[in-house]
């Protein structure tokens, strides 16, 4: 279960031209929740605050205001416990190139406080599911982007997390690899996990997400099933919703 109530997050950046500090509100009063057995799609244009929201949920950043609970743990007061039940994946995450997937997953099993034989078994099962079992003992520095992303998926799911946070998981992946990731997300939902995904790929949202939230300029617009979101705004598809938001009709 993920719960966000009036969450705010901003950054201070320096304007290179004026040399003055500038405040950017990345997330402004976002409130939504994701239940177990549900895939929540977080949409929005670049810079809308999607990654920041997911990083807040994953415990990589701290909210300035509001309440954020993951698996019943307060993300601010109990960050380690909250992180322990999250599997986080982002498109810009990488793997340790000098390691083989077996060594890499073993190491992360230790980081997640898993027993060695449990981690080994789970790594084996995940790699088999992702079609990389033959590469278990090959150094990852020569892996393709898709292969590395698959290993990252295995790393994120290794400790059997109750909450799965995937930030643009199919970016840069070919159709086949993207399909493997999407199939896996469906399986995770079927297993009763709480899944939240951010993406730009509309067909993916229509395909797998149970509910959708659109972030625009740090504000969440709509938090409903896709059909309801479209009918509420009188739009035929998500692209139209985007254009409406961009035109300030929200």
């Amino acid at each position: 279960m993920i719960e966000l109530v009036d969450v705010h997050k901003g950054f201070t950046v320096r304007d290179r031209k004026t040399r003055r500090k500038k405040r950017i509100e990345a997330v402004r009063g976002v409130t939504f929740s994701v239940c177990p057995g549900e895939i929540y799609g977080l949409l929005g244009p670049n810079g809308a605050g999607k990654s920041t929201t997911l990083r807040l949920i994953a415990g990589l950043m701290q909210a300035e205001r509001g309440r954020l609970r993951v698996c019943g743990f307060d993300a601010e007061r109990e960050p380690e416990q909250a992180r322990a039940c999250i599997g986080y994946l982002s498109g810009d995450l990488n793997v340790y190139g000098r390691f083989t997937p077996r060594e890499f997953l073993k190491l992360f099993g230790q980081f997640q406080d898993m027993e060695a034989h449990v981690a080994e078994g789970r790594a084996q099962a995940l790699m088999e599911r992702l079609g990389l079992l033959d590469f278990m003992d090959v150094r990852m520095e020569g892996f393709s982007t898709g292969q590395k992303q698959k290993v990252s998926v295995a790393r994120a799911l290794l400790h059997d997390p109750g909450v799965v946070v995937f930030d643009e998981p199919t970016t840069g992946l070919d159709v086949l690899t993207a399909k493997t990731v999407l199939d896996l997300l469906r399986e995770l939902r079927a297993e009763g996990r709480t899944v939240i995904v951010s993406t730009h790929v509309m067909p993916m949202v229509e395909d797998i997400c149970d509910r959708v939230g659109i972030l625009f300029d740090g504000i969440l617009h709509g938090d409903a099933p896709l059909e309801q979101l479209l009918s509420d705004r009188g739009a035929r598809n998500l692209d139209e919703v985007f254009f409406q938001l961009a035109a300030g009709e929200a």
Partner: peptide, 14 residues
């Protein structure tokens, strides 16, 4: 730079 620090930070390790 290699993009591996976030993986490490996303674990339960303080």
């Amino acid at each position: 730079e290699r993009g591996t620090l976030l993986s490490l930070l996303s674990t339960r390790l303080p």
